[in-house]
């Protein structure tokens, strides 16, 4: 086993009945990495996670963990933890009993058990809630119990299903910090599933973007954010102006358009609204919509290239609806897409 493949998925194919959800997926994850599986619903990210946990049988391919083939190992023997989106706490047991559940099944009893459970509760700041029932806790507290319940088992891999999506904005930051702290302190390998690119960018060491049951791109948050490889990823991370490239020219709804500056060689180009130059340039557009977002102002332009979204500093003078504007899509700023779909 190389260090680069603590957990590896090899040609993994997963299906619900005859419907293939994930096809021929290859992925290598290092020990101690924090990985985000990012994608829209139906992209196969949750399916992949369930297969790693052993909750979904593998149709073909392999799941290897820490040098051992886990493909046919049942879920209760894998040493993989999972924090469910709904937390899945046992409603009839106290917080303490929830955390003790797995340890007791391991045969742990008495002082050793108590020490472990207390440490687990303390690590998530819930020592004083040991005797409460899950229903008496807030969503954020329930999630921390679920986290402690998985972590006391010292799993080789901890999976988290949409860990931040059920929390309000303030708790989200808190939980994000908490997860990073747990990961740093224990060195556990973490994989979380999310459809929220901001969540993935903020938390992950590496992001795996999935689409239609396959991996679209793997990279650091910076890679994904700045250098999307495909129109799909570009769209997913907020590039709103995306065009295919044909012989150095932009294919738009208004025909082939020559760009200013040297045309790069790629299958397509993508610009964030912020990358669009407003006020000067070879193109002309009419303001169809405008919205104020505090620091910035967004414009939706009707142009000969189709609809263009631009974003500029809010401090600059505002343009009224219907105003004619010059603009430019600078080729030098664009993200180069090698795949256009």
């Amino acid at each position: 086993m190389s260090d680069a493949s603590y957990l590896s998925l090899e040609k993994l194919t997963l299906a619900y009945g005859d419907t293939v959800a994930v096809a021929d997926l290859d992925l290598d994850i290092r020990k101690g990495e924090l990985i985000a599986l990012l994608g829209p619903s139906g992209c196969g990210k949750t399916t992949t996670m369930r297969a790693i946990a052993g909750l979904l049988p593998v149709k073909s391919g392999q799941v290897r963990l820490d040098g051992a083939d886990m493909t046919r190992v049942p879920a209760n023997k894998r040493a993989v933890g999972l924090v469910f989106q709904s937390y899945a706490l046992f409603p009839h047991l106290s917080v303490y009993e929830n955390v003790a559940f797995g340890l007791k099944l391991k045969g742990m009893r008495g002082a050793e058990l108590d020490t472990k459970v207390q440490a687990g509760l303390k690590s998530v700041g819930l020592s004083s809630f040991a005797n409460r029932k899950p229903a008496e806790l807030s969503g954020g507290q329930q999630q921390r119990v679920a986290l402690a319940r998985s972590m006391v088992m010292e799993p080789k891999v901890l999976l988290l299903d949409e860990p931040l999506s059920n929390l309000d904005a303030r708790l989200r930051l808190e939980m994000r910090t908490e997860l990073q702290r747990v990961q740093k302190e224990t060195g556990v390998t973490m994989i979380f599933v999310t459809h929220d690119q901001a969540e993935a960018l903020a938390l992950a060491d590496r992001i795996v973007v999935m689409k239609g049951g396959a991996i679209e791109q793997i990279g650091t948050p910076e890679d994904i954010y700045n250098r999307p490889v495909s129109s799909f990823v570009a769209d997913f991370v907020g590039f709103e102006n995306i065009f295919p490239l044909e012989g150095g020219k932009l294919r738009t709804s208004g025909g082939l358009i020559e760009l200013s500056g040297e045309a790069p060689s790629a299958a397509g180009l993508a610009w964030r609204p912020r990358m669009v130059t407003l006020g000067t340039g070879p193109f002309r557009g009419t303001v169809r919509g405008t919205s104020f977002a505090g620091d910035s102002r967004e414009y939706l332009l009707d142009t000969s290239l189709g609809a263009i979204k631009a974003e500029v500093e809010a401090a600059l003078p505002a343009h009224a609806l219907g105003a004619d504007l010059l603009f430019d899509l600078p080729a030098g700023k664009a993200a180069l897409l090698s795949k256009f779909s």
Binding site: A53, A75, R78, S86, A88
Partner: peptide
């Protein structure tokens, strides 16, 4: 009753029947 608590129990080391 949510069915995911059974999966949670399995991942904590219990058998399906358990």
């Amino acid at each position: 009753l949510r069915s995911d608590i059974e999966e949670a129990a399995v991942l904590l080391g219990s058998s399906r029947l358990g």
